[in-house]
Amino acid sequence: MPVHDLGYRSWEGRRTPRILRPLFVAQSGVSLVWRRRWLRTMLMLAWLPIILPAFGIFAFEYSATEPGMRQVVVQVLSGPFQRPDLAQQAISDPALVRHEVWTMLILTFFRYPQLSAMVLLVGLIAPMLVSYDLRSKAYLLYFSRPLSPSEYILGKAAVVWFFLGMIVTIPALLLYVIGILLSPDLSVIGETWDIPLRILGASVVLLVPTTAVAMCYSSSTSESRYASFAWFATWILGFVAYQFLTFMNVQRPPRRRRGGPDWQELNVDFDRYRLLSPYHTLGKVEAWVFGLDPTEGSVWPAMCLLLIIAVAGFWIVRRRIIARLSV
């Protein structure tokens, strides 16, 4: 017996509230994922794209005083963003378009580099979250403590949210802070106060359904590689199918039945293949959250789809866990 072994001793102390128990699940998950060096490297790399929108905000704020910068802003707004109207306004009264330019830059950051980073990151983290527990039967340990399946799912989902928040929400909020710091005075806060809320809203749109899908795949198998495969396949096939069908649709002349309703007037979403692609569906809703939805048609089908996916995804995870416990 080691000299420090005092035998069994009772423990008397104050226990933490039960509501905090999912936090321990999340904490343990984050600490396990954080040990992987590739992940730390990836997180750092995922921050690199922030340079472009940060430079965009910098250029916009200095365009009022620096003619060279003004030229850059006009070129960028007219070129890649295809908003010559905004470019004109930026020259005449930059304060008037500040809100739109900032949200456009932040949305672009959300939409392109961070969405791709999100797909990669979730595809590498989430599949192992539940499948490892199924393989090692760890759920017996979790649920021998006062933890419900819903709290377990919440704890596991929080792991994904933590890392996604690190590469999406925090950099976007940082961009906003950079904008405030570079702006001429603090009255800009009054003009742009809603942007942080929109960032949080867009983050929720991005995080919740994607986590639900990833965890759903993870809970469907005890082999995490199958879950990873299913995750990446969903994104790639959805994207390719959307591009292909949209291209085919453009090639074909529009057909209209005689005497039928004019769908254009009824504001129906003609981009009917969008719902096939998670990338484009998320993009539609995110753009709507930022108030910059350029596409025609209602956002509701996309929103409803994301909501259904989120609810169904978490429901399936819960069912899978309860089914495992019953064996």
Partner: peptide
Amino acid sequence: RDQVGYLPEDDCYIA
């Protein structure tokens, strides 16, 4: 469950 300690029969661990 808060007042019970459970040792499962199955080989289970947190990977």
